[in-house]
Design a protein around this nucleic acid. Structure first.
Lengths: 144, 144
DNA sequence: GTTACTCCCGTAGTCAGCTACGGAATCAAG
DNA sequence: CTTGATTCCGTAGCTGACTACGGGAGTAAC
């Protein structure tokens, strides 16, 4: 599956990682990727490690880490900072759980509004709109 | 609770709504609030309706509507477009539910990684970091 | 050797939703 | 009538993560 002596230009790497060339160049500028050597002329060549790094970034992004935080994670990469990595993971987990419960409250509120709309069909007053105007007081699901 | 003949300057309104003056001026520019009359000189005066509008905006924002979408909701405000409002609510509800389930997958993935970190304490390899490098394949919770 | 593609680099633009700045006008209090 | 706060308006800046553009250089295929 993975070739050992794999040397890619930025365009090939971008295709392999499923992202744009400019994105990779942006990560280089941000310092998220090491500048690779330029074996021939002035054109950079990337290897499997570079591709792995892009996977790392994309996965961490999906987990909710910002590019700055990902930069932090990458400094822990030698494997000797497991505790620090765990702490970052726990913090992110906490914030993810907060987002979930917040969204669940939103879900309940929206669901209630839509139900009311369905029930009151034909009425002059739209309960969804009037609830927004009245600030959702009766739902007891107010914003934080 | 609510005074009938309430006339506020933008600063008072901002304080009442708990937001900044510049934010309200921004909403005016975006067309989310009607330009109020300027009874004396060139200074705008706002009433209870303006405050209600700000509540509307903030609540709808909390529910996940963008300012553009809120502009759309506001055109339905006369109460005769209950069906359209319900459709918008249902769409938003769907996207909120998608976000929730996506975040729940993230939660499971992160939780797994943190657990592994705790278990493997003292190990040279940090399982959180290596999982990110390997793309989370073993967790079967990959990004969409 | 010519054409067509890709690469390099730096800079600037995009999106949403604000937030800040500067200078003039106006208002309320003393 | 002065002082100081507030308002007006237009414009510009901010954040995060890209995305695009322009012009020059290198590279690959025919």
């Amino acid at each position: 599956m993975s070739k050992k002596q794999c040397s890619m230009t930025i365009g090939v790497l971008a295709k392999a990682a499923g992202m744009g060339v400019e994105t990779i160049r942006y990560y280089l500028r941000r310092g998220l990727m090491a500048e690779p050597e330029k074996p021939y002329g002035s054109i950079r060549h990337y290897d499997e490690q570079a591709l792995a790094r892009l996977h790392f970034i994309r996965t961490a992004q999906w987990l909710g880490f910002s590019l700055d935080e990902i930069g932090g994670l990458l400094t822990l990469q030698d494997g000797t900072h497991c505790d620090e990595a765990r702490v970052l993971g726990e913090q992110k987990l906490t914030s993810v759980r907060q987002k979930i419960s917040s969204l669940q409250r939103i879900e309940r509120a929206l669901d209630g509004l839509v139900q009311e709309c369905c029930a009151q069909r034909g009425n002059v007053e739209c309960p969804l709109i009037t609830s927004l105007q009245d600030g959702l007081e009766n739902t007891r699901l107010l914003p934080d």
